[in-house]
Amino acid sequence: MDWGNIFGNAIGEIISPTTAAYALAAIGLGVHFGYTGLLNFGQAAFLLIGAYAFAIPTLAGAPIIVAVLSAIICSVIFAFILGIPTLRLRADYLAIVTIASAEVVRYVVTTTGLTDFTGAANGLSGFKGTFAAINPIPEGRYGFGPFMYNEYDWWVRIVGWTLVVLASVLVFLLMRSPWGRVVKGIREDEDAVRSLGKNVYSYKMQSLVIGGVMGSVAGIIFILPRAVQPANYTTGLTFFIWTIMLLGGAATIFGPIVGAMIFWVVLSLTQGILYGAIESGALGFMTTTQAGQVRFILVGVALMLLVIFRPQGIFGNKKELSFSV
């Protein structure tokens, strides 16, 4: 087994753009669930919307700033469409409706009727030009050890992690303020907050929009190193983001970031080890495809154990557990 390679790949995941995208999406979900108590099981939809609303205008020739604005505006509109009917509902209904809405948008972009816009099941590609064009890094390969990347890969990483940091700062500023107090109050008991004269519905909507825009921007980062494929936006994606958020601690600033890093490093490690073991014949009964599936079994089991035994996550305060209901 090539341990150097296995660890190299795993370490590389720490700063990979995918990790940054998941971290950002988890920060947004943390605003929803961790701070406001909204059971959003449709975070994948925000990533999807960010991805398509960025890629489609870009492919139509729009400059990058327009494409980014389009992604943000579309996610705000989607948050409103999602929020208006659901934010009055009981928490568990909200979960079902958000997961359903996420599936609806996925079905819609996959439908063959929209092939000209969305590429249907094939998705979209060839939208990286505008982002690459504003890359200030000269061509070449940079870095050391496992962190050797070309100028584009570095550019994606730098932008991605900068956005993660900005989002974290924003969340920090919001949550230490009276605004944050109101949404945390809503998480605990919205009727009580209502009885104190706060427009609960409006705060929930603000929270949904903020977390949703973060998800949408995460959607852009997510596709910059790859193509847009509708199959990536299943409920599975939402559940991974949940796992990451709960891993780090739902109502914490650094939780989602560290959660995303751990998640991807561990996934990469298990993949490397399982594949290595299969190649060396130690796991003769398993194919490499099956090894890929074992990792998802582990994700499921890890999610269960985490929620049962450490619901506050790694960083969460034991007293401030992440579940009030």
Binding site: D92, G236, F239, W242, L303, M304, V307, I308, F323
Partner: peptide, 16 residues
């Protein structure tokens, strides 16, 4: 809610 997420974990594990 915690139990609900446990059921999600169980669903992922079983499905795979």
């Amino acid at each position: 809610v915690q139990a609900m997420i446990v059921s999600i974990g169980l669903a992922i594990a079983l499905r795979y």
